[in-house]
Amino acid sequence: MADPMNRRGFLTRASLLSSSLLLSGCDPLVQQSWFRNILYGAENVTRSVQGLFLSDARLAPEYSEADISPKFRANGTIRPDDDDYTALAADDFSNWKLEVGGLVERPASYSLADLRGMPSRTQITRHDCVEGWSCIGKWKGVPLAHVLDLVGLKPQARFIVFYCADTMEQTLDGEAKYYESVAIADARHPQTILAYEMNDQVLPIPHGAPLRLRLERQLGYKMAKYIMKIEAVESLKEINGGNGGYWEDNGYEWYAGI
């Protein structure tokens, strides 16, 4: 049987190749419907290939303490330009709460202390960025599946959407903030956690404090930082651009599997 790491490498390179087109002066192409169809077709191939190799429960590789990168580059925003977030950060997020709602039986909100009091998982994993770099870090947080079990998903829930504090651009309708989404199967994967620690320290602001998603079998832009709210939904079509995430609304793949 082929080495699973080689399979992962193949999938990683394939995803990086398709996404890198968007980082190399091809942005005008993204506006063309025929080019979007090519991208979405490639996404379906990525999902199909990964489905052949990886079960829903298969784990991404985990590493030892000795493998942790001496410097872990921060992806995306490094400090949200948002007054409410700045006020929360100034108070060490003591007044921050994670809202969990949508298609759930028991909507709730949780403080950092609440989340820290829940069952936790610690994992040392590799972060693969769409820009082509990788780092290994240690993460601790509450499994997302545990939070979903607490609130109770309704049968029609198919996706989990993450709403974040970082503003990406100013639009005619106001501020466009970062958001992401995952399918329920990926939300319930054992390595999908809401991380509040990195490398045995409180999660730093450049890496998404107070809470970020770790979705270890997908590319870095899927791992939403500065999470403020989680919502269970049946469809992504009516949310912002309708493609399931800020970068997806700008042409990236929704399923960024590696």
Rank of each mutant, 00 (worst) to 15 (best):
D3N: 12
M5D: 15
N6D: 13
G9W: 01
A14K: 00
P28Q: 12
L29D: 09
I38R: 06
I38P: 00
L39R: 08
Y40W: 15
G41L: 14
A42M: 14
N44W: 01
V45P: 02
T46C: 08
Q50R: 07
L52C: 08
F53S: 11
F53G: 00
E65A: 04
E65S: 05
S69N: 13
P80G: 04
D83A: 11
A89N: 07
A89C: 13
L98E: 05
S109I: 04
R116Q: 15
M118V: 02
T122D: 07
T122M: 12
T125I: 02
C129F: 06
S134P: 02
K138E: 10
L148H: 09
L150F: 03
V151C: 13
L153V: 09
A157I: 02
V161W: 04
F162D: 00
D166T: 03
T167D: 14
L172V: 06
D173M: 14
Y178P: 00
Y179F: 15
A185G: 08
A187N: 04
Q191V: 00
L194Q: 01
E197I: 01
M198T: 04
N199C: 14
V202R: 00
I205V: 15
G208M: 03
G208R: 01
G208H: 04
G208A: 04
R212T: 08
R217A: 11
L219K: 07
K222W: 15
M223A: 12
M223D: 12
K225L: 04
I227E: 01
I227C: 10
S235T: 15
G241R: 05
Y252W: 12
W254R: 09
